[in-house]
Design a protein around this nucleic acid. Structure first.
Length: 804
DNA sequence: AGCTCCCGCCAACAG
DNA sequence: CTGTTGGCGGGAGCT
């Protein structure tokens, strides 16, 4: 078969299509500077759980050739890529629109560009400038240091985006993704304090749930709709809608407090700090939007209403403080794509306000489910709108309710007391997924893609041809290759195909790209699936999990290497089990939006052994001359053995693709579907959301890793090299939206892959991929960075980039 | 000058 | 006591 090489370029080239905003780029660079990520590597792929051996990747990376081969960049080594940059990349990839909108508006203000450019010149890289920039940056860190990162670059909103980019919007329900705040902070190069701000807001929306100290579980947007619905209900019960009206009226009247001060809710009532927590405030703030007719809330009004009872609002300082907090919350919500900043004109002038972009109407259906998750508990009453009379009462009630967290949350909190031990979560934990798509690592970066499931259940798939799809899944993991025979189209079919090829434009030249297909989802939902939008029921259904399984394992976390190792093992051991078990319809998760798939399917998928879900794409530049091929990640060792020189020790199933094939696709991770149709939906949810279906990770190659399958299990303990550390970013895959910009690519193999090893493929494979990173991640985690504490604490290591 | 909001002190909490 | 969370508000960057 012919293999054409897909150069990264090819992949990347598409990226051009995206416009890169200057900002982004800039930001990226700058960001890099800022955050130097010390070690990105770590991030564990989301789904680390799988035992599957991943391998190759690391190996490849390791291969000198690969890494170095690409001369292009020095960056390879150096670059500290900016997390942000990746993010941006992702975003842009996902949906330019979104990016533009939100990013520009809020997050990235045009400013950033400063230096980016410079880098570019050097950068040879064909593709992405970004990398280049990164490279330079790396080199220049110091310079960078000089320059301070603009404030914007350090903004909470941007940070939040980075954070969100680390995880999939719709993680497989069963396999929770474990989040270590320390790791996140380290990865993002910020102090923990900042992460708390983000996490608290995310927790209020149940995007994350607290497990224990320093430990959170990532739920993504799966519960978001339900949560919002619940909040809406609660908001009505509380009478917020009335307050809003009042506020608006009063607004005109004067700054007086709209709300009565009586409420004692959370703040005072609890007495606890927690009551005043950002979490509570965030929920209230969101409630205001959800009950507002205009869906627009001014900061002033919100502050007043939220000041609640406690102090008289009169205290100006209180007000100011409240407003500050609201900005913090608003930044996070903006990053989530739930609100956007606007200005409302009033007599006096314009006041800052935020408009709700998220869903406002929820299906009842959702309710049931939602309620479960949510704290619905509290609310005794139906949520009827209250009359003004009731307001007071309502408020009173409200307080109480406020205090209560959503059930889940509450529960979690309880756990919090639990040992923080990193144990994995039940499902799987993943560690940080890494995501930034790009990592500069240069060529070495590995991208992982998850494919979502496509319509069919088949596990495999990653590369099936359409026709093949229909066929029974290939049993074995290994694929063969596809060769040219495959048409690009076949390879990637957006809509139909189950798999997406997610490509991040950002990757400038990844030497290796991993494609990952989520094992499970058999069915994909073509349509909405990905959409960020929440809510529609459809969505939910769709969402389902894709690869639930993957996650299972994982996690990795920062725990000590040993632990991780153990965990890994355990996981791996368990994986098989888990997978199966999970397979069982995990549905519990409730409405998953993404895929309509049934659980059953899932189960099926699980059952099916074979296809590899992940493929490793090796660009020709990688050193394999002209070969472009995809290696199945899951694979068993059997696959092919590459020539030593090129790739030492790899034995993998692989698929060869004509470069052309890939070239067509811009890498997209997914595109967001632009679904524009829905109003708000289109909005962007943050990247992660988009990615949901497909996830991919990009990482630097782990040098240390061996390709061996085992890898998954045994993480490499030490990734010492900075590079390694840096690596992974995971990007989430976006859902492919058929229509959307994103391109989904489905890869099909004419021949279904022949699987050598049936088993692994699927989930395991995926896991493996993730794991690999995870492995690294573990190492990473090991990295000292972690917390510093105290006032002194803060400054992370950031300053010291690990970079080599 | 006003809006934003980063930064980090330091207290509440948890173990 | 040590370490984690996170309230809080000074003050600086940005518009």
């Amino acid at each position: 078969m012919e293999v054409e090489c897909l150069a990264l370029k090819d992949l990347t080239s598409p990226r051009k299509s995206f416009k890169v905003e200057p900002e982004e780029e800039d930001g990226g660079q700058s960001e890099q500077k800022e955050n130097i990520c010390t070690e990105w590597r770590r991030s564990t792929p989301l789904k680390s759980t799988d035992p599957v051996p991943v391998l190759l990747i690391g190996r490849l990376g390791a291969t000198p050739d690969l890494a170095h081969i690409t001369p292009i960049k020095q960056s390879t080594l150096v670059e500290p890529w900016t997390p942000t940059a990746n993010l941006k990349m992702l975003i842009s990839a996902a949906s330019p629109d979104i990016r533009d909108r939100e990013m520009k508006k809020v997050l990235f203000r045009p400013i950033e560009n400063e230096k980016d450019e410079p880098a570019s010149p050097d950068a040879v890289a064909e593709d992405t400038e970004v990398e280049d920039s990164c490279q330079f940056e790396a080199a220049e860190e110091e310079d960078d240091a000089d320059k301070k990162p603009s404030r914007k670059q350090k903004s909470l909103g941007l940070l939040c985006q980075k954070f969100l980019a680390l995880y999939p919007d719709y993680p497989p329900p069963h396999s929770p993704i474990w989040i270590s705040l320390d790791e996140v902070a380290t990865n993002l190069g910020v102090e923990r304090r900042r992460i708390y701000d983000i996490v608290n807001v995310l927790e209020s929306l149940m995007i994350v749930g607290r497990i224990a100290k320093n430990s959170y579980t990532w739920y993504g947007r799966q519960r978001l709709e339900a949560t919002l619905e619940d909040l809406q209900r609660r908001g009505r019960q509380q009478g917020y809608h009335l307050q809003m009206e009042v506020a608006s009226e009063s607004r005109e009247a004067g700054p007086g407090r709209e709300e009565d001060g009586t409420e004692g809710d959370a703040g005072s009532a609890g007495g606890n700090r927690k009551d005043k927590s950002l979490r509570i405030m965030s929920q209230k703030f969101v409630m205001l939007f959800l009950v507002s007719k205009t869906q627009t809330v001014t900061l002033d009004a919100a502050a007043k209403i939220l000041i609640e009872e406690s102090q008289d609002s009169s205290s100006h300082s209180k007000y100011k403080t409240k407003v500050r907090r609201l900005y913090d919350i608003a930044n996070v919500l903006t990053s989530l794509g739930l609100i956007k900043k606007v200005h409302v004109r009033e007599e006096r002038g314009r006041k800052p306000a935020f408009k709700w972009l998220g869903p406002v109407e929820f299906k009842n259906t959702a309710n049931a489910e939602n309620t479960v998750n949510m704290a619905a508990v509290n609310l005794p009453e139906a949520a009827q709108p209250m009359t003004s009379q009731d307001l007071r009462k309502a408020k009173m009630a409200r307080h109480a309710s406020f205090n209560i967290m959503p059930t889940s949350v509450a529960i979690q909190r309880q756990f919090s007391s639990a040992p923080s031990s990193p144990r994995q979560e039940p499902a799987g934990l993943s560690n940080l997924p890494v995501d930034y798509s790009k990592r500069t690592a240069g060529n070495n970066a590995v991208c992982r893609l998850q494919f979502e499931n496509s319509t069919d259940n088949r596990p495999s798939a990653a590369l099936q041809t359409p026709a093949s799809r229909s066929l029974p899944p290939p049993s074995s993991t290994h694929h063969t290759l596809l060769s040219r025979s495959i048409h690009p189209e076949h390879l990637f079919t957006p809509s139909s195909s189950p798999h997406c090829l997610a490509y991040l434009p950002s990757l400038s030249q990844p030497s290796v790209v991993m494609l990952y297909r989520a094992p499970d989802n058999p069915d994909q939902v073509p349509e909405g699936q990905r959409s960020p939008r929440l809510p529609s029921e459809e969505g939910r259904k769709r969402r389902r999990e894709e690869g639930e399984d993957e996650e299972t394992v994982a996690k990795k976390r920062g725990t000590s290497a040993l632990e991780e190792g153990d965990k890994m093992r355990a996981a791996s051991a368990g994986c098989s089990q888990t997978g199966s078990s999970r397979t069982s319809p995990s549905r519990p998760a409730g409405p998953s939006r993404e895929q309509p798939v049934d659980e059953g399917q899932v189960g099926n998928s699980n059952s099916e052994p074979a296809q590899p879900s992940h493929y490793l794409y090796v660009p020709n530049n990688a050193g394999l001359n002209s070969l472009n091929f995809l290696l199945s990640a899951g694979q068993s060792p059997a696959g092919l053995a590459l020539p030593p020189s090129s790739v030492p020790t790899l034995a993998l199933p692989y698929v060869l693709l004509p470069s052309a094939t890939l070239s067509h696709y811009p890498l997209i991770a997914s595109g967001l579907p632009q679904q524009g149709s829905d109003g708000h939906n289109k909005l962007s949810f943050s990247l992660p959301a988009m990615m949901s279906p497909a996830q991919f990770m990009v990482g630097a190659t782990p040098y240390g890793l061996t390709a061996a399958p085992e890898m998954s299990r045994s993480p490499v303990p030490t990734p010492s090299t900075p590079e390694q550390s840096r690596l992974y970013g995971s990007a989430a895959g976006m859902p492919h939206s058929p229509s959307g910009p994103c391109q989904t690519v489905s890869v099909s193999t004419p021949e279904p892959l022949t699987p050598h090893t049936p088993k692994e493929t699927t989930p395991s494979a995926s896991k493996a991929f993730f794991q690999t990173p995870g492995t690294l991640g573990s190492a990473v985690s090991a990295v000292p960075a972690t917390r510093k504490r105290g006032s002194a604490q803060r400054r992370l290591d950031v300053g010291h980039p690990p970079t080599s």
